[in-house]
Write a protein that binds this DNA or RNA. Sequence first.
DNA 1: GTCTATAAACTGATAGAC
DNA 2: GTCTATCAGTTTATAGAC
Lengths: 193, 193
Amino acid sequence: MPTVDRRTDLLDLAQGMIQERGYNAFSFKDLAARVGIKTASVHYHFPSKGELGLQVMKRYLDQLEECLRTWAELPSETARLRAFVGSYRDTENQGAICLCGSMASDIQTLNAPIHSPINRYLERSEQWVVQCVQAGLESGEFLSTLPPETLAMSLLPSLQGALILSRVQGGGTLLTAVEQSFFASLGVLDERP
Amino acid sequence: MPTVDRRTDLLDLAQGMIQERGYNAFSFKDLAARVGIKTASVHYHFPSKGELGLQVMKRYLDQLEECLRTWAELPSETARLRAFVGSYRDTENQGAICLCGSMASDIQTLNAPIHSPINRYLERSEQWVVQCVQAGLESGEFLSTLPPETLAMSLLPSLQGALILSRVQGGGTLLTAVEQSFFASLGVLDERP
DNA sequence: GTCTATAAACTGATAGAC
DNA sequence: GTCTATCAGTTTATAGAC
């Protein structure tokens, strides 16, 4: 699938393989074969596998920031948080897990430089959820006795775990359960026909 | 670390490496080196890596059943569920993730036979949590408007995700947040000094 | 049970030609 | 940018001796 930029193709492909199979289960040979070049040519674009992984993760972090900017336009904290959960559902529908969750599960095998974008991805996500929850509690949109940090901190692992487990069992029902539990904790009633 | 049974040593070691580094990041060479034999000798005990993985996972499923039997003795549903969460905390304290969570994140790269014990592990865990929640709701120990299945289904992914993310960031605080959110959803107040 | 020897394939990577 | 050629090391596995 050649698009305009070979480098971008490789980033896309690598990201997809990491989200589908894991960092330690893809090789330059896989990449090269799918894009129609030789493995040595991949090294022209990315000197090492570590560098490729780093660039994939950095771009993913940028994409998160872009999403957060888009979601800032939404009319309510509920809508913002639904959009956040929705992005995980999109990933699930592709038969993939979050790139960051995939990297996190392989963290002990990754070299140091990639740790910081992984870290920042989680940090930023959590921080953003905390802000949403806090704003919703202050405006009266949400109602909860628990501290907003506790609620917010439990959402991220839930979503990551739901994606990881859903490919084995449960499919979309896990994510639905997580979403319902979370919004119920915020006192948001489930909207049904 | 030679104990009585070499086969058991290899199972223990393999399990540890999968929980710490992932299935695709350990080799027969690693195993052999640590146990002090050659890789060919490992093949005497386990014909293939797939078979080894399968046996590790089967044993882990047996260990779960044993835990559930032990926890049946506990005096309340709250105690049972705290013990369940506690077992995840033990794993976290070892710097590891759940074997099943690790396998699940690599599911696309694993051959068919290992799928069923992974599946059963999740199935059994969820089923058990549902039973606890249901019993607690019926006895009045818990209080919730959400269906017990929804609550129970959201716990497992939360715990798995918390372990996976905790090695990157947050440490034990993620698991604590998950635990507090879960028990709050059941109307169980946090016990503090 | 463990060893040596061996195999075929793969892995990440480099050098240098086109 | 991509190729060929080549590299050293790893990975999973088998055959057969001790």
